[in-house]
Each structure stands twice: as C-alpha cells, then as structure tokens.
Design a protein around this nucleic acid. Structure first.
Lengths: 344, 344
DNA sequence: TGTTAGCACTCTATGGTTCAGAGTGCTAAA
DNA sequence: TTTAGCACTCTGAACCATAGAGTGCTAACA
C-alpha cells in the first residue's frame, strides 16, 4: 500500500527522515528549506508537514517542536524513498581481504566479519553459527580416550568440524568403535544431516547387531548435532558502539540492550525467523519480540552450497541509517555466502 | 604495615565501610551512632572520624558531607577488619549441583559457573579457559579430510580436547599421517605441553626422515597450542547486573565497562597476573590496568592435578562487598579445582 | 488555487535564586 | 574523655523568569 504522496510530500518526508537520522533531533520546516533546497518557503513545508502528520508518517513531541518520523514514516522511507548507499570500494576491499585470508574455520570467519561490521557501523552485530542440517557428511571418527569414553569427530563435506564426547555405560574396544565408524561412513557419507536422521533407524541396526547398544549412544549424539538448530553458536559484537547513539544516553535503554546481549535468546529468535532471500528490515513494533520494539533490525541469511546455514543481523535504534546498514548487511551476507561456497 | 588503630577507630572505620557498601551514600556520625551501637555519641564519633580522615582512611566529598572510605580505607578493611561472610548451605548446595551435573567439557562447566556467580552477585564475572601448558598429552590423531588437509585432534590426559586443521602445501597420504601420529604418540604421550616443545627438536626428526616436511606443519600447530597462554578462551557474564550498582548510572562508566567486556584484553591480563594461591583482592589504583583503576577486582586461580590451568575474577566498583565477593570467588575456585581433579 | 510573509502563541531548556535539611567542627561544660 | 549545643557550610530541590525555537493561522500575493 503505497499511500500516494505527491513528489513534494515525498521530498519533505525524505528530508525529515534523513535529517533526523543524522542529527537525532526534531527537524524544523526552516531546516528543511535551508538544507534541502526544495525551492519553497518554510511556510509551504509546514503545510506539507501538517498533512504528513495527519497521515501518520511524522509526529511532534510537543506542539512547538519540529517533526520526527513515525515508525510508519520510516517504513515508507525504507520501502519507497531510500536509496541504497552502497559501500566505498575501499570498504569492499577491506571485506574481501578479511574473507580471503581465512582458514576454513567458520567460527573465526564469523568473528572477523563481526569485527569488520563493528568498524563499519555503530550498531549491534550478531551472527548465528552455521547449521549442519543441510550439509553433507564427509566422515565420522570415533576415537577412544578412556575405556568408557570416546571422542566423536564429524567432518562435513564443507570442511566444518564438530566434536563431541560419547560416554558409554560400559567399556568399549577400539575394534568396536572402528567397526561402528566404518559402517556409519559407508552408509551416510554424502548424505545431509537431515537425511541421516530419517534413514538411520531403518538401515544400520541390522548390520551391527553386536554393537547395537554402542550404536544407540552414537546415533543419539549424531542426531542431536543435526537437530541443533540455533541452540548454539551466537556470535556478537558492537555493543559498546551502540552507546554512541544518543538514544542510549538513558541508562534504562542501555540495560535493555545488555539484557539482549547477555540473554542471547531473543537475538537467536530474530535470526531464526529470518528465512527469505535478500535482507529483511523490521522497524520498531514490526518486530515480534517485545524487547526490540523500539529498535530497528536488519537481517539476512547466508548460504552454503545453496542452503541456508545461518543468518546475521544488525540492531540499532529505530532511528538507524537504514540505507547504509542494509547495504552493509546485504554485502556481508553475500560475500560470506560466496566465500563459503568457494567463490571468493 | 598495620597502621595501629585503637579498637574504637577500627569499629568506626568498619562501620563506615560496611554502611557505605550497603547504601552507596556518605556515612554520617549520627548514622553510625544509631545503627552500630558503639555506646558513644555522634560527637565522639566525629572526633574519631576526623582522626581517620587525617590518616587517609576515609574522606569527605565536601565540608559538610558524611564520610566515605578512601581506597586505603578499603584496603585496611580487607586486610584487618573484614569477616569472610561464607555462603549459606543453600548456596553451597547450588554450586555443588552445578559442578556435579556436568560432563567433562570444561567450556560448559565454566559457562555454568558464570551463570551461577551471576545469580549470587551483581558483579562482572570472568574466567580464563584452561591452559594445556601443564597438562599431559594422552594422544594425537591426524585425520585426513582432503588431499592437502588434515584434522589434528589432541586429547589431554585430563580429557580436554583441541582440534585444529593442518593445511599442507602438498598432498599427504593416510599412511603418512598415521605414521606421524604414531611416532608423536610414542614419544610424547604423558608429557606436558611445555615439555613437548623442549624435546621436540631433538628426538623426533631422526625417526621420521621421510615425513620431515609434513612434520614441520604438525609440530608448528602443536607448539602453537601449547604456547597459547591466555590468547584464547575468555568467558564472561554479569555485565548487565553491574548496571544495578549506582556507580554505573553514569553513561561514561558504563562505556568503560563495555570496553572492558568487548576488549577482553585487559581482563585476560588481569587473570594472567593472578598466580598465587588463595584469592587476590585489588582495590582501585592497586590495579595495574588503567581501565580498572576505579574498580575492585577479586581473582583466584583454579587447579587441575596440582597445576594452575586457569583463573577467575569478579569485578565491581571500588565500593564492592569484598567480604561476600571474596567468599564466593574462594568457594567457586576451590570447588572447580576439586571437581576438575575428580574430588567432587 | 497554491504560496508565502508576518505574527501570535506554545513549549522547552537554561540559569538564577531561595530555602530546607543534613552534617560537620568547635567550644564549653560535665 | 565525652558530649550537648550551636554556628557554619554545602547540596539539592523547588521555583521562577526568560530567551529561543518552532508552529499554526491569517491575510496578502502571484
């Protein structure tokens, strides 16, 4: 619903939004007339502003203050007026350097990406780690470390590695472990983890009648790894930068932000809800999570071999620079996807 | 240097410190007379206070305000007056439950310990992860994952596991990897990582003339793991709790705290300096790190098999409850050490 | 009909002033 | 040595007055 605005109203709204994003202050008609050369006087702009206010796109804090955008105003801006700002070639270069330099340890890559975004913006950055769910298994190893314990190492075809202890209630032999690992590899190599949990029950048990007990333990762990969803691996940074934003001069706001950071659950939820392609922008009350109803949130997923394996987000005050922030999220998510899929 | 104080001066100082810790307000002579029954009038207490101020143990914000402890005052209190408060049996029970329930993954144990301390206090909690340095090697595995890549899994005798990719510049065979792993195990099993770096050069190279190139890569990684010091594995929590303290109503203070949290380096340094037995209390300018000169810091190491493998810390405002905080650090560090060494 | 100059009106933020209250230091008496 | 009494000091809250920014409205103008 485009809410038909004539050109000048659009220009005024754009001016209000962009000026407010920069200054964090209410924007007066005079400021717009002076800074944004619309070729009309403040009085005319005041008339337009009165209309925009009636439509709910801008609002006043009190009768004699300038206007600030309402959440709908930001939404209109993001949908119709915003020009993606793009990054400088210098910034793009920086990003590529970071991705190109990395070894194949995703945790490290993500941590460097966070540092990067932290330098590029003053918002909170957060990533969910990669999920195994849709990646294929390359091999499984079971390494004995004690009579009743083994280390299970799972290598995905994408080079991602997980390890977990398996604790048995009885002693196991090296032979047993190797045999089980062998059968698992024969059966499951090349399958994705979501496929494995389906087929597990049918095929393997017959072949390993002797180690059935042992297998119980091992399969349980493999399943839990595949089912792990977003329960693990939230990476974040930039909290201290956000304090530069004037809306976080109030200690209450800061506390809410820290709750978000330490709680992690809400951020996980936000990333979990992100599924579509491209970037998602949620402004204030558009967010389903209570704790971020006065924040702007920009998210995007990243891919590996065509599958969604994780997501990233940028969180700031409602008055955030959506043009720049969404450019950055877009670019980083795409670069990361490209890098992971081997097209650096 | 005990700074001889007569009994009443000690009582007054104790009252000033403890009342200030609770209320965060300057303490007046009248308050002390009323709440701390010393059997003398406010006027007498004022005389004692004047003396204590002259000795530099307490100070006034302005001529007509009550007194607050100076940093030396806190020091005197911690050294001579403080009675360790001990934990309730309920709290001790909670702690044991947490430690008893865990599998042998230290990262998890530490994370739970942090959560626990976060509930018990309103200070920032931080742990350094365990160091391999003084733990013995149990085994090394080299698992091929691609022609030029292998996964190196290192299991310590304490059940701690590390893995790292080894990237070769040339294809390696399974046989090569197994041979190298075999020799490494033969030579180094049971040695601590610090010992390994010493003996490496002498003994292994002769035996593996053919795989010498391959060995270069592998040994480099093993060395880097052993040398890792505190470069990795800082766990922390409780930042949002600290905001409850009135000294963090000021946004500047909050920013300093967040810098500490996100920077991590300073906290690592603090833990790294902690070496002695028992707990260490550093008050304000006693800290060597600029960023925490207006904080109180309590640290303790934790042990595994008699060796220091990590440390923990509690950080709050100078006006922190040293009695309770140091009891907690003491108890948690000891419980953790006990648990790790298998005496739960 | 759309635009704009002019003006009255409103609201906020700032600085100054006053005043009560809390707390001290000192003196003199017990 | 202790303490009651009192003068003195400083803070913080409350209360103004005022300047300034910005608006809405009206009436004139293109």
């Amino acid at each position: 619903m485009s809410l038909n605005l004539n050109l000048r109203k659009q220009q005024v709204l754009e001016a209000v939004v962009e000026d407010h994003i920069i200054t964090a202050e209410p924007v007066s008609s005079r400021t717009i007339a002076r800074k944004y050369q619309l070729g009309v006087s403040p009085a005319t702009i005041r008339n337009e502003m009165a209309d925009l206010e009636e439509m709910g796109l801008i609002e006043q804090l009190h009768t004699s203050s300038g206007r600030i955008p309402s959440q709908q105003g930001y939404r209109y801006y993001v949908d119709w007026l915003m020009r993606k700002s793009g990054l400088t070639t210098d910034e793009e270069g920086q990003i590529h350097t970071v991705f190109a330099r990395q070894a194949r340890e995703l945790a490290l890559v993500v941590q460097h990406a966070i540092k990067l975004v932290t330098q590029l913006t003053d918002y909170l950055v957060f990533f969910s780690g990669p999920q195994l769910e849709h990646t294929a298994l390359q091999q499984v190893r079971l390494i004995p470390v004690a009579p009743e314990r083994a280390l299970m190492v799972i290598v995905s075809e994408t080079g991602w590695v997980e390890n977990k202890f398996v604790e048995f209630d009885f002693p196991v032999t090296v032979d047993d472990l190797e045999q089980v690992a062998g059968v698992l590899n024969d059966h499951f190599r090349g399958l994705t983890f979501s496929q494995i949990t389906r087929t597990v029950l049918r095929s393997v048990y017959q072949e390993l009648t002797e180690q059935r007990l042992l297998l119980d333990y091992v399969l349980e762990i493999m399943e839990s790894l595949a089912r792990r969803d977003y329960a693990d691996g939230l990476y974040l940074g930039g909290a201290r930068n956000v304090l530069k934003q004037p809306e976080y001069q109030d200690i209450q706001q800061v506390r809410k932000l820290l709750d978000l950071v330490e709680g992690e659950q809400t951020l996980r939820e936000i990333l979990h809800e992100t599924t579509g392609e491209g970037i998602t922008v949620r402004i204030g009350r558009e967010n389903r999570q209570d704790q971020v109803q006065d924040c702007g949130v920009i998210t995007a997923v990243y891919l590996l071999g065509g599958n969604i394996v994780g997501a990233m987000g940028l969180l700031g005050p409602v008055r955030m620079d959506y043009a720049r922030a969404s450019s950055i999220v877009d670019y980083i998510a795409q670069s990361l996807s490209g890098y992971l899929s081997g097209h650096p």
